[in-house]
Design a binder for these strands. Sequence first.
RNA 1: CGGGGCGUAGCGCAGUCCGGUUAGCGCACCUGCCUUGGGAGCAGGGGGUCGGAGGUUCAAAUCCUCUCGCCCCGACCA
Length: 476
Amino acid sequence: MAEKVTPRDVDYSKWYTDVVLQAKLADYAPVKGAMVIRPNGYAIWEAIQANLDKMFKDSGHVNAYFPLLIPESFMHKEAEHVEGFSPECAVVTIGGGQELEEPLYIRPTSETVIWSMYKKWIMSYRDLPILINQWANVLRWEMRTRLFLRTSEFLWQEGHTAHASYEEAEEETVKILNIYKTFAEDFLAIPVIAGKKSESEKFAGAMHTYCIEAMMQDKKGLQAGTSHNLGQNFAKAFEVQFQDKQGELNHVWATSWGVSTRLIGALIMAHSDDRGLVLPPKLAQRPVVIVPIWRGDDEKKKVLEFADQVHSELKQKYNVIFDDREQYKPGFKFSDWELQGIPLRIEIGPKDVAKEQLVLVRRDNLQKQFINRQELLVKVDEALSDMQIDLLEKARQFRDDNTHVKDDYKEFQATLDQSGGFIKSHWCGSAECEARVKDDTKATIRCIPFDEPQEKGHCVVCGKESSQRVIFARAY
RNA sequence: CGGGGCGUAGCGCAGUCCGGUUAGCGCACCUGCCUUGGGAGCAGGGGGUCGGAGGUUCAAAUCCUCUCGCCCCGACCA
């Protein structure tokens, strides 16, 4: 606890790891690339799950669970899918002490098992749509891992839907992307750019992939969620057909979409500071901590009595931490809870008891506010909702300040090297120019934004005609 | 897989080059006192197969060989 968090401008990677470990969000597990999500971190995931799950249910989706192990033959049915995932799959070859007849893949994602089942469940258009989501773990054998951002095993939700037409699947894909965007901004307080992935960045096996892209405090991009229109690829691979109203047999149209525990990494890198975690109030299971302060038994009695009343009132509405530990001084407690990202601290000392007031300190700006005892609930509500709004606004400002419009390739490169951030440039649409940028600068096309105005221009690399700008950035 | 770094108490490290008391320090932990408006202080205390195996030696944390693991940077990726 006494150890300090490495400041961001000294070493951003170290800072990130320090925050994760010291805020007790996660810890390294015995297996390389694996992590333990500790209670503080898991509470964030539960908050993400609870809110997103509600949004899914509200839009007609239901939850189910499919198995962890996938027969090898399934993995090979969809050509692009195999190619995309084979290298990073773990395979079970022995069971019950005997070599298995067919090796079993540990799911890197569940399209194949799920579509093998959809084949059994779908006969006619009356069986459609199927709007299933599952909360699960998946495994991908990663070369380089980082806590939350990329671990071999991670938790996510994966939605897998089946539709009667391309249009309906497309509508679903976009609908989900909007849910992700709303969630990211309203709950995580992370502004995101919604758009489409380029051919080379899209999901293996998809017709096209949509995504939301966020900017972290080191100005690197981070993909926060994806939604795929899978077309009929999986339906064809698994021979899933339905009879339409006219009696014709057609292959089913599919989507899949997901967000993962990576969102926790995004959350940390978007808002936290050199004192530790900064958690948006809406995601804090314990948004308030009360720290009583006293000197001597007489004061202790009065302060605790007063603080206890405050606690009782507040706990009707919030999950409150009442930190009356005697072995620590207030200064220590302040730092401790700041490190763990508790959004709002209430300090109550003898002076406050005398004046019937208390002190509110917001985690994001650390400003002290003296409020009247009577205003408690109103002011706490206000502080928490203001903080939620301010975090989003601050992040949006940061992103906009670090987004550059460039038309000249030399300037494009120089900007990436000197200041980083998002670069909006014209792109002709060719994989060659995209690859050239990646080779030259390590930046990739994060997305082709939906709400970017159509304007005539010239590809920043080759000069060919282009109709809109895309987002380039170095990314996680 | 390539490059770099590192395994000594729960954590962070010193000691290793140049072998030699009982392996040490800071933090954390336990007991007591004292403290409490920004990470207190004093006193006492517990805790170690020095990553593992083999070798050299009168003697190995230290030298040699092999081995296991982790972290960081790259190629790959949500």
